[in-house]
């Protein structure tokens, strides 16, 4: 059974709990979940609800961002995130341009800052950036005049992924607008060390009140991650006990061989999510994966394709809605929406 989506008109919006106008989201950029307060996360989730609805209609076009130019500057390969941002921008009516590092002057030695200045001079209205170095997006944000969205920077953050995951969970549990994830047990398993998805999710889920557990072999667990408010597990079965949500991360095989774990099949032996293992979690526990998956390694096909337990395609769907919400909210100041005045110094 597919969980219903609580976005129908009979559910009244509870936006009154948010500060008025631009005060609801006093940031020019979205560089990370770490910059957001709890109510700002909820605001973006609530804003995304309308786009989930729109995206399910045959006519998917809204003209909100008509005339605006959005540049997707991807310095690192990506398929789904790039596509998701591109679709999001186009459905809002913006002109979307994609810049791939592989085909750009970055290959010719141009520095990141010079590339950023170039994009800025082309008067983009928003720039979406993915880069292999932690902090690169924030660096660019400091040099350009338009909103910057982080589509993943190194091992630091991937905020839209965490937002779409939270929205997916909320929908799967039939939680209404404004709801947080208080008391939910979420287990994140996999290469936590190299994962920006894990970091953003830890920040978002703990801010929303969930109990977050992280599970990985010691070599793939970052030092002192307990300080981020999570429980650390090395034993997957123990981490699954009582879990309501299980987020599997991709085994980044390109980094692995012989260095962090002995082999993929040994990894599967200890950390692969099989149907048998899934049974050790709560009876109705749900499974998520940010993709791309290594089927048969961190997740078995029977789990990934499970009709009621897997939320993986739901995540992709919510991804477009979340990105639409982020593009909408971040361009409101440029579009001079009433109540969305320019930010005065300090806020970022």
């Amino acid at each position: 059974m597919q969980p219903s989506i609580p976005t129908s008109p009979q559910i009244a919006p509870t936006l009154r709990e948010y500060p008025a106008g631009g005060l609801a989201f006093p940031h020019r950029d979205l560089t990370g979940i770490g910059q957001l307060a709890r109510h700002e996360i909820l605001y973006l989730l609530d804003e995304a609800e309308q786009w989930v609805e729109l995206n399910r209609q045959s006519q998917k076009r809204a003209g909100l961002l008509s005339g605006l130019t959005i540049i997707n500057a991807f310095f690192e390969n990506s398929t789904r995130t790039l596509l998701s941002f591109e679709i999001a921008g186009k459905r809002l009516g913006a002109d979307v341009v994609n810049m791939h590092a592989a085909t750009s002057s970055v290959k010719k030695g141009e520095t990141l800052i010079d590339t950023a200045m170039t994009l800025n001079a082309m008067r983009a209205d928003a720039i979406v950036i993915r880069h292999a170095s932690s902090g690169a997006v924030r660096l660019i944000a400091g040099k350009v005049d338009c909103p910057v969205l982080n589509a993943g920077d190194g091992q630091h953050e991937h905020p839209t992924q965490a937002l779409l995951d939270a929205l997916t969970i909320r929908h799967a549990l039939n939680l209404s607008r404004g709801s947080d994830l208080n008391g939910l047990n979420v287990t994140i398993c996999g290469d936590i060390l190299h994962s920006r998805v894990a970091r953003s999710n830890i920040l978002a889920l703990t801010a929303l009140g969930a109990n977050v557990r992280v599970c990985a072999p010691p070599a793939l667990m970052p030092a002192e991650i307990e300080a981020m408010g999570v429980q650390v597990f090395h034993d997957f079965d123990a981490a699954l006990k009582g879990a309501n949500i299980i987020m599997m991360l991709r085994l980044q095989q390109e980094r692995m061989q012989g260095q962090f774990i002995p082999s993929p099949r040994e990894y599967r032996h200890l950390y692969g999510l099989t149907l048998e293992r899934l049974a050790r979690a709560e009876p109705d526990a749900l499974v998520m994966h940010p993709g791309p998956m290594n089927r048969g390694i961190e997740i078995d096909s029977q789990v990934a394709d499970h009709p009621t337990r897997s939320l993986i395609t739901h995540q992709v769907e919510r991804g477009v809605a979340i990105r639409m919400a982020c593009l909408d909210v971040l361009t409101r100041r440029a579009r001079a929406l009433p109540g969305w005045d320019a930010l005065t110094g300090g806020a970022a």
């Binding site: 091992q155 630091h156 920006r196 970091r199 970052p222 030092a223 981020m228």
Partner: peptide, 15 residues
């Protein structure tokens, strides 16, 4: 240096 700061920032770190 490995620790909370490097972990939060996602920086390659060593103990």
């Amino acid at each position: 240096t490995a620790g909370e700061m490097a972990t939060r920032l996602g920086l390659p770190s060593a103990p």
